[in-house]
Amino acid sequence: MYVAGIDIGSTYSKAILLDEKRKVIGTAVRRTGFKLGQASESVFEELLTAAGVDRSGVTYVASTGYGRQTVTFRHTQVTELTAHAHAAVHLFPDTRTILDIGGQDIKAIRVDGDGRVRAFRLNDKCAAGTGAFLEKTARYLGITTADIGPYALRSTNPMEVSSVCAVFAESEVINHLSNGVPAEDIMMGAMVALGGRAVQLMRRVGLEGGYMLTGGMTHNAAMIKALEENLKGSFHIAPNGLGQLNGAMGAALLGLRRVEKLLADGKSIPLTAANLGPAEASIRRRWSATAVKKPAEPCKSGGDCPVVAKVMAHPPVGTATA
C-alpha cells in the first residue's frame, strides 16, 4: 500500500510516496509554474516514475499547500501548517517550534508533542522575509538559486539590507553594487535581513526549545548559518533533502493515518484519478462536516428574555480531516 503527499507551493511543487511502514519510496520536486492543475499532475507523474510505482498502486492521495484544491485527484486536503507540524514531530519528536521559509511566505508554528498545532504566525502582506526576496536579489547579482548558499558563505563583511519591502530592498542592492560592495557581502546581507525577520516571527509564536527548519532553505547552508546565529540555537534539518518535502510528507502521513482508520472501521477507500488516470477523473471529494448535534435551549414562555446560559459540551470531537 502506498500513500502520496502532494504539496503545491507558490514556487515549487513537491511530492512524496510512503509505504504503510512510513518508509519513503520516492520523491519529486519541480517548479509550480502558472498552471496549477498541470503542476500537480506532472509532479505526481514524476513521483510515480521515481518510485517505480504504478498509478493503481497508490491507495490514497493527500494534498497541501496554496494549490491544494487544484489537485483534482486528491482524497483529502490539509493546510501546510498542519502538515508541517505533523511531519516535523514525526521526524524529530522533540520539535516544538517550526520555521518554514517558503517562496512567498514564512510560517512559524508551535506544536505539542503529538504534532498538533498550538499556535502559528505567518508573515504579513510583505515579501521581504520570503524565499522570493532572496531569489530576486540573486537574480540582480547574476547568481542562480542553487549557487546562493555557497556564494554567500564567502562573505567576510555582510552588508546591511534594512528595507522592510522586497521591492525597495532591491534599490538598496543596486545602491550597494554601485558603491562597489562585493556581491557575496550583499547576498549574505540579504540573508541576515531575512533571518532576522524569520526569527522575529518565531519569537511571536513563542520560542520553545526544539527548533526545526523546513522548506527549500534547508538546502542553503549560508541561510541556516544566518538563522542559527540570530536564534543562538540550532535547527533540526530533515536528512536526505527531505526538508523541502516536509509539507508533502506531513500530508502523506496524515493520509496514511486516515487510511488506517478507514480500514480499521472496515470502510472502503474511493478510487480517484490518482488510481484511474486523469481521463476518468469525475468525482471530486470535498471536506464535509461530520454531523454533530448540539442541543438547543428551548424558549420558556413568559418573562422578558428566555435566555438561560447553558453549559455546553466542549468543542465537538471531530474526526480528523486526514
Binding site: 510512503l18 511502514k21 512510513r22 518508509k23 519513503v24 490539509v78 493546510t79 501548517l81 498542519t82 505533523h86 514531530v89 514525526h90 521526524l91 519528536p93 505539542d112 508533542g113 503529538d114 504534532g115 498538533r116 498545532v117 498550538r118 502559528f120 527531505l242 510528507m249 502521513l253 496524515l254 496514511l256 493515518r257 488506517e260 466542549h314 468543542p315 465537538p316 470531537v317 471531530g318 474526526t319 480528523a320 480531516t321
Partner: peptide
C-alpha cells in the same frame, strides 16, 4: 484544523520514525 485537533485524537499513536 488546529481547533479540530484540540478536540480530536492526536497522531501520537502512529508515531514511528521514517526510515
Amino acid at each position: 484544523e488546529a481547533l479540530q485537533q484540540r478536540g480530536g485524537a492526536g497522531p501520537a499513536a502512529f508515531k514511528t520514525v521514517a526510515t
